[in-house]
């Protein structure tokens, strides 16, 4: 028998600190595989967010930095402008990117920074205990929306990908999900494409939004959380290549 699937070298051989069934682990693996398949470990610099994935550098075996909450696109800008030959990617949650860091991602996209952004949308602030994120669904119960989010009270879920599509500086925006085997495979293709664009010197920012389960704060089993992505999240956050097909 031949091994057809094994851990890729850039994904360190260690347990994660993530809850059972959390999407961060899957997303990390897809990034690690991409880096290895493209053979770019030696020229890649990753940016870990503030959020559950703050320790991403403990799992991804590339040069990495941990930055202030939401500021990853600015840090990436500083890196890429001074190191145009390096492959710079940021990994950000929805609190990080869509809430406190909304300004930074908007302007990095607006300037068309040649960076790759992996945006993990799990509709909550995982790290701080499941509070409302800008991406929280209407009626979704969180620690800070105990009766469910209302449009009148907290506004509608923020569709950052759609916002970024409108900017001339973004070249590729795709929304994927980790909700099934097929979707995970598709997410991998999208992530790889986003890295390939940067590698090819394409002039602009690419972003892959990943609808990712947080079973813990959705209070669902890992399997039910996957179903919830398809039944609820994709209704508000439709999947697809929103800009720049592959």
């Amino acid at each position: 028998m031949k091994t057809v699937f094994e851990r890729t070298p850039t994904l360190k051989d260690c347990p994660t600190h993530y809850c059972p069934g959390c999407g961060h682990g899957i997303a990390h693996r897809l990034i690690a595989e991409t880096i290895d398949e493209l053979g770019i470990r030696g020229r890649t610099i990753g940016i870990a967010p503030v959020g559950c994935a703050v320790l991403a550098y403990d799992y991804l075996d590339v040069d990495m930095i941990e930055v202030a909450h939401g500021r990853a696109p600015a840090v990436a800008t500083g890196m890429k402008r001074t190191n145009p030959d390096k492959i710079i990617f940021s990994y950000q949650g929805d609190g990080d990117l869509a809430s406190i860091g909304a300004g930074e991602i908007l302007h990095a996209g607006h300037r068309g920074e040649q960076i790759t952004v992996i945006f993990i949308n799990n509709a909550v602030f995982g790290m701080t205990g499941g509070q409302m994120a800008p991406t929280t669904m209407l009626e979704q119960v969180t620690a800070t929306t105990p009766k469910g989010r209302t449009a009148a009270g907290e506004g509608y879920p923020l569709q950052v990908a759609e916002l970024l599509v409108t900017l001339p500086g973004t070249i590729y925006v795709e929304r994927c999900a980790l909700s099934s085997v097929a979707q995970v495979r598709n997410t991998k293709k999208a992530i790889k494409h986003a890295f390939e664009l940067q590698l090819s010197g394409a002039q602009g920012l690419s972003l892959v939004e990943v609808l990712s389960p947080c079973p813990t704060y959705w209070r669902l089993s890992p399997a039910k959380a996957m179903e919830w992505i398809e039944s609820h999240m994709t209704k508000v956050f439709p999947l697809g290549q929103l800009k720049g097909g592959r």
């Binding site: 699937f5 994660t16 961060h24 682990g25 085997v181 995970v184």
Partner: peptide, 13 residues
């Protein structure tokens, strides 16, 4: 493909 811990190795004939 779905294992969040990436701890499954797969072999095939």
């Amino acid at each position: 493909v779905v294992c969040p811990e990436a701890i499954i190795e797969v072999l095939r004939e």
